[in-house]
Amino acid sequence: MKKHYLSILLSILAFAGPTVAHAESFKIDPFHSAIICEIGHFGVGHIYGRFDTFSGTFTLDQNDPSKDAVNVEIKTDSVDTNAPKRDTDIKGPDFLNAAQFSTATFKSTSVKKIDDKTYDVTGDFTLRGVTKPLTLNVKAVGSGPGPKGEFRSGWEATATLRRSDFEVKALLPAVSDEVSLIIAVEGIKQ
């Protein structure tokens, strides 16, 4: 009899196993997410800005992080540095050239687990028509039910890129070559 119960339990576990391990897809909730950029100004300070319009998805596989994936699309004309004239300049041909290149995108190509809460996500970042590899240092913030009962997963990523790699070379070195990014997202499980 004991053997019989054990075989039933094993059958249930075998059935349940794949449902726990399958990859989960999340859609970025723009209302609870932010993409912030920081750039050096004449070597004396930092200017912070944010991109107000973006979208994206990410896929999580608890058992196999190599199957995780991240896709983000940022509208370049949504940059906001709290100075309208400067925003116009940044959207212009010297920097983002938003009229010709309306989006910047990141598409992950590999995910490396550092520890339980930290990952290195490497992918192709495309800015102003130039695609270069970029590694995001990603940290898990938390996960659980949201206000409407939906399941949410929160992450924060940081990265540093050189704008000259993307042929954005105006006002170098007065406006620094290095640009830091903070991408803080909440995803809603689909």
């Binding site: 130039v130 042929e167 105006a170």
Partner: peptide
């Protein structure tokens, strides 16, 4: 502009 781009991708 700090250099030439080849092939050119944008009008400038």
């Amino acid at each position: 502009f700090g250099g030439f781009a080849f092939p050119p991708r944008e009008s400038g």
